[in-house]
Amino acid sequence: MRQARPYSAMFAGGVSARTGPHALPLARIKKIMKRSAGDSSVVDGGGGGGGGARMISGEAPVVFSKACELFIAELTRRAWAATLEGKRRTVHKEDVAAAVQNTDLFDFLVDVVTADLGDDHTDYK
């Protein structure tokens, strides 16, 4: 029974029932990838009509499923550090923005996290 509980949690949590063995749905990842690759009309695995068509291997979304877990975890940890600096226990959007500003690796997210920050007091420079 000591083993059954964590094991049951894995199943009852809905991970296997909802997205199979991956924490994030592969179909959704593939849709986002297709938009970035510049072609959303080609069926995966089907015959590509034009030379410019971009297809996505079935394994690429699998890699992203795990990569996004690592990414969300790292971004969340850094946001929590910013929350602690503010002596708070609730992670806010501003904490995510601070985490992005303080991490060179996340430079590509600056526009995302500052899009709706209109208040002057949240300007991290």
Binding site: I32, M33, F71, L75, R89, L109
Partner: peptide, 20 residues
């Protein structure tokens, strides 16, 4: 720890941006 709704939405946006 608690997570505000705006933080959840921001992380969602960041994940899509990361994939792109």
């Amino acid at each position: 720890a608690k997570i505000s709704d705006d933080a959840k939405e921001t992380i969602q946006e960041c994940v899509s941006e990361y994939i792109s």
